[in-house]
């Protein structure tokens, strides 16, 4: 488990992370979304031990990460800006990683380079941007770490490669309980991959939830009545948003779907539609409920 407690990170007087708290359980695929400058990369660099927290503690399996080789040997981090040794090929990089990480699997490295169709003896400098991303991803997956962090890696992969990487991660989750953190600025990118989602904004997690609960906790109700009515008719139902045009009202409701539907049906409406929301809509309404305007954040 990765645990961050009251973590603050400053660069001169710029506060990148402010009193951040979060727990990431084992075998979780954790998605971190946020706009540019929200602190996603800073957070990843902190939990992989690249930065020392200005304040607060970050631990993996109960031990601090900073300057702790034992813990760091279980962590693999694929940064947004990749680094390869000058003029090296993937074999050279594999030897480098194998020297640093005991868990490095040459067998898996061979398998993956073959599956992805990358030449392990070609100069990485001749690779395209997407191929470099693939190369870094293959090397990271070959390390077979307990903790795997990807900084916007998925954004640079084509759909076929993305699916391949996902499958390797899924099989690692099944077999070894690997914990993965993926950052992205696109919600859609993470929606079908992660099981936990956190939204980072101005250096703090404003919102964290299980992705499935997120999708079922809120829903949209469209309802019409014969007589004139207003918002007060729905007292007792937790309404996040209310809009009415003529005799039709649209509500965003939080609660148990069947209970609320029963409650409204008892009012004998002329029309009643209950619709689920997509993740983006859920985010918009949850954020508004917290007092943020979504368009300022994403």
């Amino acid at each position: 488990m990765i645990s961050a407690k009251n973590v603050t990170m400053k660069f001169d007087d710029f506060v990148a992370l402010n009193q951040l708290n979060c727990d990431i359980p084992d075998s979780c695929i954790y998605g971190l979304v946020g706009s540019n400058g929200a602190g996603k990369s800073t957070f990843l660099r902190l939990i992989s031990g690249v930065y020392r927290p200005y304040e607060g503690t970050i631990t993996a399996d109960g031990e601090p990460v900073w300057e702790n080789p034992k813990v760091k040997s279980r962590i693999m981090y694929v940064p947004d800006e990749l680094y390869f040794l000058p003029q090296s090929d993937m074999n050279t990089m594999a030897r480098l990683y194998a020297a640093v990480y005991d868990s490095f699997s040459t067998e898996r490295f061979r398998e993956l380079t073959a599956t992805f169709g990358l030449k392990p003896d070609a100069n990485i400098g001749t690779f395209s941007k997407g191929m470099k991303r693939q190369a870094a991803t293959i090397l990271a997956l070959s390390v077979m770490p307990k903790y795997l962090f990807f900084d916007e890696t998925f954004d640079g992969l084509d759909p076929v490669m993305r699916n391949l990487v996902k499958q390797v991660i899924y099989s690692d989750v099944c077999e070894r309980g690997t914990t993965t953190i993926i950052t992205s600025h696109s919600l859609r990118e993470l929606e079908d991959t992660c099981d936990q989602l956190a939204l980072l904004h101005k250096g703090g997690i404003v919102f964290e939830s299980d992705i499935q609960n997120l999708k079922t906790a809120l829903f949209k109700v469209q309802v019409a009545f014969a007589d004139t009515f207003g918002k007060e008719r729905f007292e007792g139902i937790e309404t996040l948003s209310y809009a009415q045009t003529g005799s039709v009202a649209t509500l965003i409701v939080r609660g148990d779907r069947d209970t609320v539907t029963g409650q409204i049906r008892a009012m004998q409406p002329l029309l009643l539609d209950v619709l689920p929301l997509n993740l983006e809509e859920v985010f918009i309404y949850e954020m508004e409920a917290l007092g943020y305007a979504f368009k300022d954040i994403m």
Binding site: S27, C28, I29, N163, K166, Q167, Y170, S171, V173, C174, D192, T193, C194, D195, Q212
Partner: peptide, 11 residues
Amino acid sequence: LSLKLSINPNT
């Protein structure tokens, strides 16, 4: 199932 459907095993 996870590999066949490409779905997160936790789900």
